[in-house]
Design a protein around this nucleic acid. Structure first.
Length: 778
DNA sequence: CCGATACGCATTTTT
DNA sequence: TGCGTATCGG
């Protein structure tokens, strides 16, 4: 029977795939060319181990995306292994999610609480910005994004603040760039995260490394536990990930890394292509297995892609081949302008659908930069061809979702400062900037957490009005109540209750503007997601109550990359980066122009040009049957029309695979290529100016004056401590701009009196009495 | 608090 | 060009 099990799997694989699956005696490096069945190998390998009777707890499988992890598990469950049950808590997930679980278990050792929450990049940036301000540094020089990037780089290279400060190279660079205090900021940032009991994304790697490095016993324990380690997309690992793997998997470990050096396109985010290139040096007993048969593309596409990647120097030698049909030649389309490029693509898409029987969802249009999507969208819209642009704002990046989640974070971890500041006055409850400033100074004066001061402002002698004090305590009590409930109740109940009791619900239900409707939908979707999560976990782990902290741990590491399923009959538009791992019958690679692809910023760095070339390789190998490469001779960039040269990459493709629309034209352009750049900027502005619909409404000055006369408060608000006009709930008013409305709430006093008014036509608005221009009608 | 405006900025972004 | 954020006047 045991023999039979292996045989089944063997039969489903080609010899190299089988070798990769069945070799488990030591380290192995599986170079998986594009379309060579990489996922197949990973899934069958796990299935093989399980069927051989390996305890699932001995297996650790690491991926870069939730989607990849989920797909792997699903495929093991449904395709491979009918007879072996796949354990629900098989350790297969992203680096970040698996590590966050292990870190939570060992949080104490790192000086963290087990309820730590996770700062997303926005939280990190806003904290950094705050620190920059607090230290009186010039925000023009110290841009939070620059500082954040340097801190992130340091963490991903496992450099702590001390290490950063003692690196002459880094200090010189900071000095040169006029930001000598970055190392100091880094140090403070780390402290603040620690105080807030928060980790950012990079900390999940950095702290995992420190945990293993500083606690040899724990490191040893995990080495024993994770006897089999599999890593997907190894070419994308960064220094931190690499070092963690080295600790978890000593020299002779059964470590299997799968990847393709030719598809390393995340160098700009810290990925080290050297990790895969030098793997055999680091693990000398490595068995090297190459998957060289491409099952995806035509021979033409594979050969053309090969001819491109051969221009790169640092490579693991391999020969990718296809036994599919030879297929059609690769078509190059040239256009005068970006607009014409779009039109040509659209025309071609139409043809493909009507003549060649391709369905519209088998077609993808790829580009180097997001900015290119606009013109393409215009083209598809005008032609009434349905399309979908991937890579917009993710669900969890939306404001209302972030706000709601901030409440949840606060309940789990009241020290989460970014969450606290995000919602302390949302929905508005009369806790404005002044109050927050006062609290902040008490925080630094007494070196306690914001939350401590908030719980008991009097104890830290914060000077507040009765009203503000009540608001603060009301807010603190709300959170405190839910903290108590969090001990016994599940994530969904907490979330639902909190959204209601915090006032978020009434805020977004206050009127039916389209924005609010979409917010309502989003909040509802989030609640549904929490409920689904509860159901999943209940089934998987048999828990009665699914804790909020578990939901947050997951949601922090989710991107909606996950849920991008084929959304019906549409053309797909996306960046090449986003297309990695996907495949389409027909692919258009657009904007094949010098300085765009390869990107201008890569020009002077050979390593970056090589990454651009790998990116092109990735783009080409997405195509199964037909590949189009398009370029324009002029294109809008930053609002100016610029002349472009065809991409040098086009000349690197072995010409026998190409079919140019008019080769002479392209060559002609190339040889004629006199620099025509500075012919006076916009002399060639072929775009007709968009005709704006006129706005005819004018404000009647007399009416303005009339209203001004009855403005509620006088023009000397500073002197008065009481509002000059008393407004009360239920009164009807007429506002200068918003029209008729009813006062539904009044808060604050004196100059800061604030009224909430529900207008007939303008929705609900908060108005500051001091400024609002309206008259009271009754 | 609201909204107009001014200014700066503009690869790619798996977590 | 067209976006997000900072700033300011009402």
């Amino acid at each position: 029977m045991a023999e039979q099990i292996g045989e089944d799997i063997k039969r489903a694989l080609n010899p190299s795939q089988w070798e990769a699956v069945s070799y488990n005696d030591g380290p192995s490096l599986v170079i998986a060319g594009a379309g060579s069945g990489k996922t197949r190998v990973l899934t069958y390998k796990i299935a093989y181990l399980l069927e051989k009777g390996v305890d699932y707890r001995r297996i650790l499988a690491l991926t870069f995306t939730n989607k990849a992890a989920r797909e792997m598990v699903e495929r093991i469950r449904h395709q491979v292994s009918a007879r072996v049950l796949v354990p629900q808590d098989l350790k297969a997930g992203t680096f970040h999610s698996i590590f966050s679980r292990l870190l939570r278990k060992n949080a104490g050792l790192l000086g963290y609480g087990t309820n730590f929450t996770i700062y997303d990049t926005g939280d990190s940036k806003s904290l950094i910005k705050k620190i920059i301000k607090e230290h009186g540094l010039d925000e023009k020089k110290y841009k939070s994004s620059l500082v954040a990037a340097r801190i992130s780089d340091a963490k991903n290279s496992l450099l702590l603040p001390e290490g950063y400060a003692s690196s002459t190279e880094l200090m010189k660079r900071d000095m040169r760039d006029g930001v000598p205090a970055v190392s100091k900021l880094y140090s403070i940032y780390m402290q603040r995260c620690r105080q807030a009991n928060c980790m950012d994304f990079d900390d999940l790697l950095l702290n995992m490394y420190r945990l293993l490095k500083d606690n040899p016993d724990i490191c040893h324990e995990y080495q024993e536990t994770f006897e089999y380690i599999l890593i997907d997309e190894y070419q994308d690992t960064n220094m931190a990930q690499y070092q963690i793997i080295r600790l978890l998997a000593p020299a002779n470990a059964k470590l299997c890394v799968v990847g393709d050096d030719a598809q390393s396109i995340y160098g700009f985010r810290g990925a080290q292509i050297g990790n895969i290139l030098n793997f055999q040096r680091d693990y000398p007993t490595t068995k090297l297995i190459k998957l060289e048969q491409n099952y995806r593309s035509t021979q033409t596409i594979v050969s053309a892609a090969n001819s491109i990647i051969e221009h790169n120097r640092g490579r693991i030698p391999k020969t990718i081949f296809s036994k599919n049909e030879v297929g059609e030649k690769i078509k190059i389309l040239s256009a005068h302008s970006d607009r014409e490029e779009s039109m040509k693509i659209v025309r071609q898409v139409k043809k493909l659908i009507s003549n060649k029987n391709f369905s519209i969802n088998q077609i993808a249009v790829l580009y180097r930069t997001n900015a290119q999507s606009r013109t393409l969208e215009d083209g598809f819209r005008d032609a009434a061809i349905p399309y979908h642009v991937y890579g917009g704002q993710s669900f969890y990046q939306r404001k209302e979702i972030k706000d709601a989640i901030a409440y949840l974070r606060l309940v789990v971890n009241p020290n989460d400062e970014e969450a606290l500041l995000r919602v302390i006055n949302y929905p508005t409850r009369g806790i404005g900037n002044t109050t927050i400033q006062k609290i902040q100074s008490a925080v630094s004066a007494n070196s306690v957490s914001l939350w401590r001061v908030l719980e008991n402002p009097q104890m830290f002698s914060v000077n507040l009005s009765k009203r503000t004090l009540n608001s603060l305590l009301g807010f603190a009590n709300l959170i405190e109540d839910y903290r108590k409930r969090d001990h016994t109740e599940g994530a969904y109940d907490i979330a639902f209750g909190l959204i209601r009791d915090s006032g978020i619900m009434s805020e977004i239900m206050s009127d039916a503007t389209p924005e609010n409707l979409s917010r309502q939908e989003n909040i509802e979707e989030m609640l549904n997601a929490i409920r689904d999560f509860e159901t999943d976990i209940r089934e998987e782990e048999g828990k009665d109550v699914v804790r909020l902290v578990d939901y947050l741990a997951r949601v922090a590491l989710i991107t909606d990359q996950d849920e991008r399923e084929d959304s019906g009959q549409r053309v797909t538009l996306m960046t090449i980066h986003a297309a990695k791992g996907l495949e389409y019958e027909v692919v258009f690679v657009t904007g094949m122009e010098d300085d765009l692809f390869p990107n201008a910023n890569a020009k002077f760095y050979p390593s970056e040009i090589e990454e651009e070339r790998r990116l092109f390789y990735v783009a080409m190998t997405r195509a199964k049957k037909l590949l189009y490469l398009t370029y324009a001779r002029q294109r809008y960039k930053f609002g100016k029309m610029e002349f472009c040269q065809p991409s040098p990459f086009l000349d690197e493709i072995a010409p026998q695979y190409l079919q140019s629309e008019d080769i002479s034209g392209r060559r002609g352009q190339l040889s004629l290529g006199t620099p025509q750049k500075s012919w006076g900027g916009n002399g060639t502005n072929v775009h007709a100016a968009k005709v704006q619909t006129g706005v005819f409404s004018t404000v009647s000055t007399s009416k303005l004056k009339k209203l001004k006369d009855v403005t509620s408060s006088g023009s000397h608000p500073s002197g008065a401590s009481l509002p000059l006009v008393s407004v009360s709930v239920g009164q009807h008013i007429e506002h200068e701009r918003f029209g008729f409305g009813e006062v539904i709430a009044v808060e604050g006093e004196g100059v800061s009196t604030k009224v909430t008014v529900s207008f007939e036509n303008a929705g609900t608005k908060n108005l500051l009495l001091k400024f609002a221009k309206f008259k009271i009608l009754d």
